[in-house]
Design a protein around this nucleic acid. Structure first.
Lengths: 234, 234
DNA sequence: ATCTGGCATGTAGCATGCTGCATGTCAACG
DNA sequence: CGTTGACATGCAGCATGCTACATGCCAGAT
Protein backbone atom coordinates (compact mmCIF):
# COMPACT_ATOMS: atom_id res chain seq x y z
CA UNK A 1 0.00 0.00 0.00
CA UNK A 2 3.00 2.26 -0.42
CA UNK A 3 2.42 5.39 -2.44
CA UNK A 4 4.49 4.60 -5.48
CA UNK A 5 2.24 5.93 -8.20
CA UNK A 6 3.93 7.62 -11.08
CA UNK A 7 1.70 10.64 -10.39
CA UNK A 8 2.98 14.09 -9.62
CA UNK A 9 2.23 15.21 -6.09
CA UNK A 10 2.20 13.10 -2.96
CA UNK A 11 -1.27 14.39 -2.15
CA UNK A 12 -2.66 13.00 -5.40
CA UNK A 13 -0.91 9.70 -4.83
CA UNK A 14 -2.48 9.50 -1.38
CA UNK A 15 -5.91 10.26 -2.82
CA UNK A 16 -5.48 7.42 -5.28
CA UNK A 17 -4.19 5.07 -2.60
CA UNK A 18 -7.12 5.83 -0.32
CA UNK A 19 -9.58 5.40 -3.18
CA UNK A 20 -8.13 1.99 -3.91
CA UNK A 21 -8.06 1.10 -0.23
CA UNK A 22 -11.75 1.92 0.09
CA UNK A 23 -12.48 0.07 -3.11
CA UNK A 24 -10.61 -3.02 -1.92
CA UNK A 25 -12.18 -2.90 1.51
CA UNK A 26 -8.91 -2.16 3.26
CA UNK A 27 -10.55 0.96 4.67
CA UNK A 28 -14.01 0.03 5.87
CA UNK A 29 -17.00 2.39 5.89
CA UNK A 30 -18.18 3.49 9.31
CA UNK A 31 -14.73 2.98 10.79
CA UNK A 32 -12.73 5.82 12.33
CA UNK A 33 -9.22 6.53 11.05
CA UNK A 34 -6.70 9.25 11.72
CA UNK A 35 -4.33 11.25 9.59
CA UNK A 36 -1.46 10.20 11.87
CA UNK A 37 -2.16 6.53 11.40
CA UNK A 38 -2.65 6.77 7.64
CA UNK A 39 0.50 8.85 7.23
CA UNK A 40 2.48 6.17 9.05
CA UNK A 41 0.97 3.39 6.94
CA UNK A 42 1.69 5.21 3.69
CA UNK A 43 5.11 6.27 4.89
CA UNK A 44 4.59 9.95 4.13
CA UNK A 45 4.14 12.93 6.40
CA UNK A 46 0.79 14.06 7.72
CA UNK A 47 0.45 17.11 5.48
CA UNK A 48 -0.23 15.41 2.14
CA UNK A 49 -2.50 12.90 3.87
CA UNK A 50 -4.42 15.68 5.49
CA UNK A 51 -4.80 17.53 2.19
CA UNK A 52 -5.87 14.36 0.45
CA UNK A 53 -8.51 13.64 3.07
CA UNK A 54 -9.80 17.19 2.88
CA UNK A 55 -10.33 16.79 -0.83
CA UNK A 56 -12.03 13.44 -0.35
CA UNK A 57 -14.17 15.03 2.35
CA UNK A 58 -15.22 17.70 -0.11
CA UNK A 59 -16.14 14.94 -2.53
CA UNK A 60 -18.29 13.40 0.18
CA UNK A 61 -16.36 10.15 0.52
CA UNK A 62 -15.21 10.85 4.03
CA UNK A 63 -16.22 13.04 6.93
CA UNK A 64 -13.98 14.69 9.51
CA UNK A 65 -15.17 14.49 13.12
CA UNK A 66 -13.79 17.07 15.42
CA UNK A 67 -10.95 15.73 17.56
CA UNK A 68 -11.85 12.15 16.67
CA UNK A 69 -10.52 11.53 13.20
CA UNK A 70 -12.30 10.92 9.96
CA UNK A 71 -14.88 8.36 9.08
CA UNK A 72 -15.24 6.59 5.75
CA UNK A 73 -18.87 7.13 4.86
CA UNK A 74 -21.10 4.16 4.38
CA UNK A 75 -22.42 3.50 0.91
CA UNK A 76 -25.80 5.09 0.82
CA UNK A 77 -28.26 3.83 -1.82
CA UNK A 78 -29.79 7.26 -1.73
CA UNK A 79 -26.49 8.76 -2.82
CA UNK A 80 -26.19 6.33 -5.71
CA UNK A 81 -29.63 7.38 -6.84
CA UNK A 82 -28.71 11.06 -6.54
CA UNK A 83 -25.53 10.60 -8.54
CA UNK A 84 -27.30 8.83 -11.36
CA UNK A 85 -30.11 11.34 -11.33
CA UNK A 86 -27.46 14.02 -11.86
CA UNK A 87 -25.69 12.04 -14.54
CA UNK A 88 -28.96 11.71 -16.44
CA UNK A 89 -29.61 15.42 -16.14
CA UNK A 90 -26.14 16.24 -17.47
CA UNK A 91 -25.07 13.49 -19.81
CA UNK A 92 -28.26 13.01 -21.78
CA UNK A 93 -28.49 16.62 -22.98
CA UNK A 94 -24.74 16.69 -23.56
CA UNK A 95 -24.97 13.56 -25.70
CA UNK A 96 -27.85 15.09 -27.63
CA UNK A 97 -25.75 18.13 -28.46
CA UNK A 98 -22.70 16.06 -29.27
CA UNK A 99 -24.64 13.84 -31.64
CA UNK A 100 -25.03 16.72 -34.07
CA UNK A 101 -21.30 17.40 -34.19
CA UNK A 102 -19.65 14.01 -34.28
CA UNK A 103 -16.59 14.00 -36.54
CA UNK A 104 -15.56 10.71 -38.17
CA UNK A 105 -12.45 10.73 -36.00
CA UNK A 106 -14.62 10.81 -32.89
CA UNK A 107 -16.73 7.91 -34.10
CA UNK A 108 -13.61 5.92 -34.78
CA UNK A 109 -12.14 6.66 -31.37
CA UNK A 110 -15.38 5.72 -29.66
CA UNK A 111 -15.52 2.47 -31.59
CA UNK A 112 -11.99 1.75 -30.44
CA UNK A 113 -12.99 2.21 -26.83
CA UNK A 114 -16.05 0.04 -27.29
CA UNK A 115 -13.93 -2.75 -28.75
CA UNK A 116 -11.51 -2.41 -25.86
CA UNK A 117 -14.44 -2.67 -23.45
CA UNK A 118 -15.56 -5.88 -25.07
CA UNK A 119 -12.07 -7.33 -24.86
CA UNK A 120 -11.76 -6.35 -21.21
CA UNK A 121 -15.16 -7.90 -20.49
CA UNK A 122 -14.02 -11.14 -22.11
CA UNK A 123 -10.90 -11.10 -19.92
CA UNK A 124 -12.99 -10.40 -16.77
CA UNK A 125 -10.75 -7.38 -16.27
CA UNK A 126 -13.07 -4.95 -14.55
CA UNK A 127 -10.60 -2.11 -13.92
CA UNK A 128 -9.59 -2.07 -17.58
CA UNK A 129 -13.23 -2.25 -18.58
CA UNK A 130 -14.08 0.76 -16.44
CA UNK A 131 -11.24 2.78 -17.92
CA UNK A 132 -12.49 2.27 -21.44
CA UNK A 133 -16.12 2.78 -20.43
CA UNK A 134 -15.06 6.06 -18.91
CA UNK A 135 -13.09 7.03 -22.01
CA UNK A 136 -16.07 6.25 -24.26
CA UNK A 137 -18.33 8.57 -22.31
CA UNK A 138 -15.72 11.29 -22.07
CA UNK A 139 -15.10 11.28 -25.80
CA UNK A 140 -18.78 11.91 -26.44
CA UNK A 141 -19.10 14.47 -23.66
CA UNK A 142 -16.09 16.41 -24.86
CA UNK A 143 -17.84 16.93 -28.18
CA UNK A 144 -20.66 18.58 -26.25
CA UNK A 145 -18.40 21.57 -25.71
CA UNK A 146 -19.02 22.31 -22.05
CA UNK A 147 -15.74 21.68 -20.26
CA UNK A 148 -17.21 22.23 -16.82
CA UNK A 149 -19.87 19.65 -17.54
CA UNK A 150 -17.23 17.14 -18.58
CA UNK A 151 -15.27 17.58 -15.37
CA UNK A 152 -18.38 17.46 -13.19
CA UNK A 153 -19.54 14.24 -14.77
CA UNK A 154 -16.03 12.91 -14.33
CA UNK A 155 -16.25 13.60 -10.61
CA UNK A 156 -19.63 11.92 -10.40
CA UNK A 157 -18.23 8.90 -12.18
CA UNK A 158 -15.30 8.71 -9.78
CA UNK A 159 -17.74 8.79 -6.90
CA UNK A 160 -19.76 5.89 -8.28
CA UNK A 161 -16.70 3.87 -9.12
CA UNK A 162 -15.42 3.88 -5.58
CA UNK A 163 -18.92 3.66 -4.18
CA UNK A 164 -19.96 0.83 -6.44
CA UNK A 165 -17.01 -1.38 -5.75
CA UNK A 166 -17.79 -5.02 -5.63
CA UNK A 167 -15.94 -8.27 -5.67
CA UNK A 168 -18.73 -10.27 -7.24
CA UNK A 169 -17.93 -11.68 -10.64
CA UNK A 170 -19.70 -9.53 -13.16
CA UNK A 171 -18.25 -10.80 -16.40
CA UNK A 172 -21.67 -11.44 -17.86
CA UNK A 173 -22.86 -8.03 -16.73
CA UNK A 174 -19.77 -6.39 -18.18
CA UNK A 175 -20.53 -7.82 -21.61
CA UNK A 176 -24.12 -6.59 -21.28
CA UNK A 177 -22.95 -3.14 -20.35
CA UNK A 178 -20.59 -3.04 -23.30
CA UNK A 179 -23.48 -4.03 -25.56
CA UNK A 180 -25.51 -1.09 -24.30
CA UNK A 181 -22.98 1.25 -25.83
CA UNK A 182 -23.59 -0.04 -29.34
CA UNK A 183 -26.92 1.78 -29.87
CA UNK A 184 -25.36 4.95 -28.51
CA UNK A 185 -22.53 4.78 -30.98
CA UNK A 186 -24.89 3.87 -33.82
CA UNK A 187 -27.13 6.83 -33.07
CA UNK A 188 -24.17 9.19 -32.92
CA UNK A 189 -22.92 7.80 -36.21
CA UNK A 190 -26.34 8.43 -37.74
CA UNK A 191 -26.27 11.95 -36.29
CA UNK A 192 -29.66 11.18 -34.72
CA UNK A 193 -29.86 13.41 -31.66
CA UNK A 194 -33.09 11.97 -30.27
CA UNK A 195 -31.90 8.40 -30.61
CA UNK A 196 -28.59 9.27 -29.02
CA UNK A 197 -30.34 10.86 -26.07
CA UNK A 198 -32.68 7.87 -25.70
CA UNK A 199 -29.86 5.36 -25.84
CA UNK A 200 -27.74 7.31 -23.37
CA UNK A 201 -30.68 7.75 -21.01
CA UNK A 202 -31.53 4.08 -21.05
CA UNK A 203 -27.89 3.11 -20.54
CA UNK A 204 -27.26 5.39 -17.59
CA UNK A 205 -30.59 4.58 -15.95
CA UNK A 206 -29.81 0.89 -16.29
CA UNK A 207 -26.37 1.32 -14.74
CA UNK A 208 -27.95 3.21 -11.88
CA UNK A 209 -30.48 0.49 -11.25
CA UNK A 210 -27.77 -2.16 -11.28
CA UNK A 211 -25.65 -0.36 -8.72
CA UNK A 212 -28.65 0.50 -6.62
CA UNK A 213 -29.78 -3.11 -6.54
CA UNK A 214 -26.25 -4.26 -5.77
CA UNK A 215 -25.79 -1.91 -2.83
CA UNK A 216 -29.27 -2.67 -1.55
CA UNK A 217 -28.52 -6.38 -1.76
CA UNK A 218 -25.40 -5.84 0.33
CA UNK A 219 -27.66 -4.33 2.95
CA UNK A 220 -29.93 -7.34 2.60
CA UNK A 221 -32.92 -5.47 1.24
CA UNK A 222 -34.47 -4.53 -2.06
CA UNK A 223 -33.80 -1.11 -3.56
CA UNK A 224 -36.06 1.55 -2.11
CA UNK A 225 -38.76 2.54 -4.60
CA UNK A 226 -38.18 6.22 -3.98
CA UNK A 227 -34.54 5.83 -4.97
CA UNK A 228 -35.50 4.08 -8.20
CA UNK A 229 -38.06 6.81 -8.82
CA UNK A 230 -35.44 9.50 -8.27
CA UNK A 231 -33.30 8.05 -11.03
CA UNK A 232 -36.23 7.90 -13.43
CA UNK A 233 -37.50 11.34 -12.56
CA UNK A 234 -34.69 12.87 -14.58
CA UNK B 1 -8.23 42.51 5.14
CA UNK B 2 -7.57 40.66 8.36
CA UNK B 3 -9.22 37.29 8.66
CA UNK B 4 -11.74 38.01 11.37
CA UNK B 5 -14.73 36.14 10.03
CA UNK B 6 -16.87 34.40 12.58
CA UNK B 7 -16.35 31.20 10.59
CA UNK B 8 -14.80 28.07 11.98
CA UNK B 9 -11.49 27.21 10.39
CA UNK B 10 -8.81 29.61 9.27
CA UNK B 11 -8.78 27.95 5.88
CA UNK B 12 -12.43 28.79 5.33
CA UNK B 13 -11.89 32.33 6.47
CA UNK B 14 -9.04 32.67 4.00
CA UNK B 15 -11.22 31.30 1.22
CA UNK B 16 -13.85 33.90 2.04
CA UNK B 17 -11.27 36.68 2.25
CA UNK B 18 -9.79 35.77 -1.10
CA UNK B 19 -13.24 35.55 -2.67
CA UNK B 20 -14.01 39.03 -1.44
CA UNK B 21 -10.60 40.29 -2.51
CA UNK B 22 -11.17 39.01 -6.02
CA UNK B 23 -14.69 40.41 -6.00
CA UNK B 24 -13.47 43.81 -4.87
CA UNK B 25 -10.62 43.85 -7.35
CA UNK B 26 -7.96 43.75 -4.65
CA UNK B 27 -6.62 40.61 -6.29
CA UNK B 28 -6.54 41.16 -10.02
CA UNK B 29 -6.98 38.41 -12.63
CA UNK B 30 -3.89 37.53 -14.60
CA UNK B 31 -1.61 38.69 -11.80
CA UNK B 32 0.78 36.33 -10.02
CA UNK B 33 0.61 35.99 -6.25
CA UNK B 34 2.29 33.73 -3.73
CA UNK B 35 1.16 31.85 -0.68
CA UNK B 36 3.95 33.54 1.33
CA UNK B 37 2.81 37.00 0.42
CA UNK B 38 -0.87 36.31 1.02
CA UNK B 39 -0.14 34.66 4.36
CA UNK B 40 1.75 37.76 5.46
CA UNK B 41 -1.05 40.05 4.31
CA UNK B 42 -3.70 38.01 6.12
CA UNK B 43 -1.51 37.57 9.15
CA UNK B 44 -1.85 33.79 9.24
CA UNK B 45 0.59 31.03 8.48
CA UNK B 46 1.13 29.59 5.03
CA UNK B 47 -0.67 26.32 5.66
CA UNK B 48 -4.27 27.55 5.76
CA UNK B 49 -3.56 29.88 2.86
CA UNK B 50 -2.14 27.04 0.85
CA UNK B 51 -5.12 24.82 1.61
CA UNK B 52 -7.52 27.62 0.75
CA UNK B 53 -5.83 28.24 -2.57
CA UNK B 54 -5.83 24.53 -3.38
CA UNK B 55 -9.57 24.46 -2.89
CA UNK B 56 -10.05 27.57 -4.98
CA UNK B 57 -7.82 26.00 -7.62
CA UNK B 58 -10.07 22.95 -7.64
CA UNK B 59 -13.01 25.28 -8.13
CA UNK B 60 -11.21 26.79 -11.11
CA UNK B 61 -10.84 30.29 -9.69
CA UNK B 62 -7.06 30.13 -9.51
CA UNK B 63 -4.26 28.17 -11.06
CA UNK B 64 -0.96 27.13 -9.50
CA UNK B 65 2.11 27.56 -11.66
CA UNK B 66 5.06 25.44 -10.75
CA UNK B 67 7.61 27.38 -8.69
CA UNK B 68 6.07 30.68 -9.71
CA UNK B 69 3.02 31.11 -7.52
CA UNK B 70 -0.64 31.12 -8.41
CA UNK B 71 -2.54 33.20 -10.89
CA UNK B 72 -6.07 34.52 -10.48
CA UNK B 73 -7.80 33.38 -13.63
CA UNK B 74 -9.29 35.94 -15.92
CA UNK B 75 -13.04 36.06 -16.21
CA UNK B 76 -13.88 34.00 -19.20
CA UNK B 77 -17.24 34.66 -20.89
CA UNK B 78 -17.14 31.08 -22.04
CA UNK B 79 -17.05 29.92 -18.43
CA UNK B 80 -20.04 32.08 -17.54
CA UNK B 81 -21.94 30.48 -20.39
CA UNK B 82 -20.91 27.02 -19.24
CA UNK B 83 -21.98 27.68 -15.67
CA UNK B 84 -25.40 28.92 -16.70
CA UNK B 85 -25.82 26.07 -19.12
CA UNK B 86 -25.23 23.74 -16.19
CA UNK B 87 -27.56 25.66 -13.92
CA UNK B 88 -30.32 25.37 -16.50
CA UNK B 89 -29.72 21.64 -16.85
CA UNK B 90 -29.91 21.16 -13.08
CA UNK B 91 -32.20 23.79 -11.64
CA UNK B 92 -35.03 23.66 -14.16
CA UNK B 93 -35.76 19.94 -13.66
CA UNK B 94 -35.25 20.32 -9.92
CA UNK B 95 -37.76 23.17 -9.83
CA UNK B 96 -40.20 21.10 -11.84
CA UNK B 97 -40.01 18.29 -9.31
CA UNK B 98 -40.20 20.66 -6.36
CA UNK B 99 -43.30 22.36 -7.74
CA UNK B 100 -45.32 19.23 -7.11
CA UNK B 101 -44.31 19.05 -3.46
CA UNK B 102 -44.38 22.60 -2.20
CA UNK B 103 -45.69 22.80 1.36
CA UNK B 104 -47.38 26.02 2.50
CA UNK B 105 -44.44 26.64 4.83
CA UNK B 106 -42.08 26.56 1.86
CA UNK B 107 -44.21 29.04 -0.09
CA UNK B 108 -44.24 31.35 2.87
CA UNK B 109 -40.48 31.13 3.36
CA UNK B 110 -39.89 31.79 -0.32
CA UNK B 111 -42.19 34.80 -0.21
CA UNK B 112 -40.20 36.08 2.75
CA UNK B 113 -36.97 35.83 0.78
CA UNK B 114 -38.55 37.53 -2.21
CA UNK B 115 -39.74 40.44 -0.05
CA UNK B 116 -36.25 40.69 1.44
CA UNK B 117 -34.81 40.78 -2.07
CA UNK B 118 -37.10 43.67 -2.98
CA UNK B 119 -36.12 45.56 0.14
CA UNK B 120 -32.43 45.01 -0.54
CA UNK B 121 -32.89 46.13 -4.12
CA UNK B 122 -34.54 49.34 -2.88
CA UNK B 123 -31.57 49.90 -0.57
CA UNK B 124 -29.10 49.26 -3.40
CA UNK B 125 -27.58 46.63 -1.13
CA UNK B 126 -26.27 44.10 -3.60
CA UNK B 127 -24.60 41.66 -1.17
CA UNK B 128 -27.79 41.41 0.88
CA UNK B 129 -29.80 41.01 -2.31
CA UNK B 130 -27.59 38.15 -3.45
CA UNK B 131 -27.94 36.39 -0.12
CA UNK B 132 -31.71 36.37 -0.32
CA UNK B 133 -31.69 35.50 -4.00
CA UNK B 134 -29.52 32.55 -3.12
CA UNK B 135 -31.81 31.55 -0.25
CA UNK B 136 -34.88 31.70 -2.51
CA UNK B 137 -33.35 29.31 -4.99
CA UNK B 138 -32.04 27.00 -2.31
CA UNK B 139 -35.41 26.71 -0.64
CA UNK B 140 -36.95 25.56 -3.88
CA UNK B 141 -34.07 23.25 -4.75
CA UNK B 142 -34.12 21.61 -1.34
CA UNK B 143 -37.71 20.56 -1.99
CA UNK B 144 -36.42 18.73 -5.06
CA UNK B 145 -34.89 16.15 -2.77
CA UNK B 146 -31.49 15.68 -4.37
CA UNK B 147 -28.96 16.89 -1.84
CA UNK B 148 -26.02 16.49 -4.18
CA UNK B 149 -27.79 18.62 -6.75
CA UNK B 150 -28.37 21.34 -4.18
CA UNK B 151 -24.71 21.48 -3.23
CA UNK B 152 -23.53 21.39 -6.83
CA UNK B 153 -25.77 24.28 -7.79
CA UNK B 154 -24.53 26.11 -4.71
CA UNK B 155 -20.97 25.74 -5.94
CA UNK B 156 -21.95 26.98 -9.38
CA UNK B 157 -23.65 29.97 -7.85
CA UNK B 158 -20.58 30.80 -5.77
CA UNK B 159 -18.50 30.66 -8.93
CA UNK B 160 -20.76 33.10 -10.74
CA UNK B 161 -20.98 35.43 -7.79
CA UNK B 162 -17.25 35.95 -7.61
CA UNK B 163 -16.92 35.84 -11.37
CA UNK B 164 -19.72 38.27 -12.00
CA UNK B 165 -18.56 40.93 -9.63
CA UNK B 166 -19.13 44.43 -10.78
CA UNK B 167 -19.06 47.86 -9.30
CA UNK B 168 -21.58 49.32 -11.70
CA UNK B 169 -24.78 50.49 -10.07
CA UNK B 170 -27.37 47.87 -10.77
CA UNK B 171 -30.22 48.97 -8.57
CA UNK B 172 -32.66 49.04 -11.46
CA UNK B 173 -31.47 45.65 -12.57
CA UNK B 174 -31.76 44.29 -9.05
CA UNK B 175 -35.42 45.25 -8.90
CA UNK B 176 -35.95 43.60 -12.29
CA UNK B 177 -34.29 40.45 -11.10
CA UNK B 178 -36.44 40.37 -7.98
CA UNK B 179 -39.52 40.74 -10.17
CA UNK B 180 -38.49 37.70 -12.19
CA UNK B 181 -38.93 35.58 -9.11
CA UNK B 182 -42.60 36.43 -8.78
CA UNK B 183 -43.81 34.16 -11.61
CA UNK B 184 -41.68 31.34 -10.22
CA UNK B 185 -43.26 31.65 -6.81
CA UNK B 186 -46.73 31.97 -8.32
CA UNK B 187 -46.25 28.82 -10.38
CA UNK B 188 -44.97 26.90 -7.38
CA UNK B 189 -47.95 28.10 -5.36
CA UNK B 190 -50.26 26.88 -8.10
CA UNK B 191 -48.39 23.56 -8.12
CA UNK B 192 -47.96 24.02 -11.86
CA UNK B 193 -44.82 22.08 -12.73
CA UNK B 194 -44.59 23.22 -16.35
CA UNK B 195 -45.05 26.88 -15.48
CA UNK B 196 -42.48 26.60 -12.71
CA UNK B 197 -39.97 25.09 -15.08
CA UNK B 198 -40.67 27.75 -17.72
CA UNK B 199 -40.33 30.60 -15.23
CA UNK B 200 -37.13 29.19 -13.76
CA UNK B 201 -35.67 28.60 -17.19
CA UNK B 202 -36.42 32.09 -18.35
CA UNK B 203 -35.03 33.59 -15.14
CA UNK B 204 -31.75 31.71 -15.18
CA UNK B 205 -31.24 32.24 -18.91
CA UNK B 206 -31.84 35.94 -18.45
CA UNK B 207 -29.34 36.13 -15.57
CA UNK B 208 -26.80 34.31 -17.72
CA UNK B 209 -27.27 36.73 -20.60
CA UNK B 210 -26.90 39.70 -18.27
CA UNK B 211 -23.64 38.46 -16.82
CA UNK B 212 -22.35 37.40 -20.21
CA UNK B 213 -23.07 40.83 -21.66
CA UNK B 214 -21.49 42.51 -18.67
CA UNK B 215 -18.25 40.54 -18.84
CA UNK B 216 -18.11 40.94 -22.61
CA UNK B 217 -18.59 44.68 -22.21
CA UNK B 218 -15.65 44.78 -19.79
CA UNK B 219 -13.59 43.22 -22.54
CA UNK B 220 -14.97 45.83 -24.90
CA UNK B 221 -16.85 43.47 -27.17
CA UNK B 222 -20.30 42.02 -27.57
CA UNK B 223 -21.08 38.60 -26.15
CA UNK B 224 -19.98 35.82 -28.46
CA UNK B 225 -22.98 34.24 -30.21
CA UNK B 226 -21.76 30.73 -29.47
CA UNK B 227 -21.73 31.52 -25.75
CA UNK B 228 -25.29 32.81 -25.88
CA UNK B 229 -26.24 29.71 -27.85
CA UNK B 230 -24.65 27.47 -25.26
CA UNK B 231 -26.87 28.92 -22.56
CA UNK B 232 -29.98 28.46 -24.65
CA UNK B 233 -29.05 24.98 -25.79
CA UNK B 234 -29.98 23.66 -22.36
C1' DA C 1 26.90 43.24 -29.67
C1' DT C 2 25.26 38.61 -28.79
C1' DC C 3 25.25 34.31 -26.69
C1' DT C 4 25.92 31.27 -22.71
C1' DG C 5 26.38 29.41 -18.20
C1' DG C 6 26.24 29.78 -13.28
C1' DC C 7 24.15 31.90 -9.44
C1' DA C 8 20.69 34.46 -6.61
C1' DT C 9 15.94 34.59 -5.72
C1' DG C 10 11.49 33.12 -4.75
C1' DT C 11 8.29 29.38 -5.01
C1' DA C 12 5.41 25.09 -4.07
C1' DG C 13 5.51 21.05 -1.59
C1' DC C 14 6.76 18.13 2.34
C1' DA C 15 8.10 17.28 7.23
C1' DT C 16 7.44 18.17 11.87
C1' DG C 17 6.77 20.77 16.26
C1' DC C 18 3.05 22.84 18.97
C1' DT C 19 -1.81 23.90 20.83
C1' DG C 20 -6.52 23.57 22.05
C1' DC C 21 -10.17 20.45 22.30
C1' DA C 22 -13.28 16.35 22.64
C1' DT C 23 -13.72 12.08 24.58
C1' DG C 24 -12.89 8.03 27.47
C1' DT C 25 -11.16 6.42 31.90
C1' DC C 26 -10.55 5.91 36.53
C1' DA C 27 -10.29 7.34 41.17
C1' DA C 28 -12.22 9.80 44.95
C1' DC C 29 -16.33 11.14 47.14
C1' DG C 30 -21.25 10.96 48.61
C1' DC D 1 -22.97 1.22 44.73
C1' DG D 2 -23.70 5.34 41.91
C1' DT D 3 -21.96 9.92 40.69
C1' DT D 4 -18.80 13.29 39.55
C1' DG D 5 -14.65 15.45 38.31
C1' DA D 6 -9.69 15.52 37.19
C1' DC D 7 -6.52 13.48 34.15
C1' DA D 8 -4.65 10.77 30.19
C1' DT D 9 -5.07 10.05 25.42
C1' DG D 10 -5.39 11.13 20.71
C1' DC D 11 -7.09 14.10 17.37
C1' DA D 12 -7.37 18.11 13.82
C1' DG D 13 -5.58 22.37 12.84
C1' DC D 14 -1.94 25.80 12.64
C1' DA D 15 2.93 27.37 12.50
C1' DT D 16 7.34 26.88 10.73
C1' DG D 17 11.69 24.68 9.19
C1' DC D 18 13.58 22.41 5.10
C1' DT D 19 14.31 20.91 0.10
C1' DA D 20 14.10 20.67 -4.78
C1' DC D 21 13.20 23.33 -8.58
C1' DA D 22 11.97 26.84 -12.19
C1' DT D 23 13.14 31.21 -13.62
C1' DG D 24 15.47 35.64 -14.31
C1' DC D 25 19.67 38.12 -14.15
C1' DC D 26 24.25 39.21 -14.84
C1' DA D 27 29.05 38.33 -15.79
C1' DG D 28 32.10 36.60 -18.84
C1' DA D 29 33.25 34.55 -23.15
C1' DT D 30 32.95 34.64 -28.21
Amino acid sequence: MLAVDGASSLTEQVIESVREAIHSGELRPGELYSVYQLAAQLNVSRTPVREAMLRLAEAGMVRFERSRGFRVLRRDPREIAEVFHLRLLLEVPAARIAAGRAEPALIEAMRGELDAMRAAAADHDEPRFMRHDCAFHELLLAAGANRKLVSMVGNLRDATMTLGASTVDRSRTLADIAAEHEPILAAVEAADADATARAMRSHIAHMGELLLAQVAAENGVAAAPEDVDLIHSA
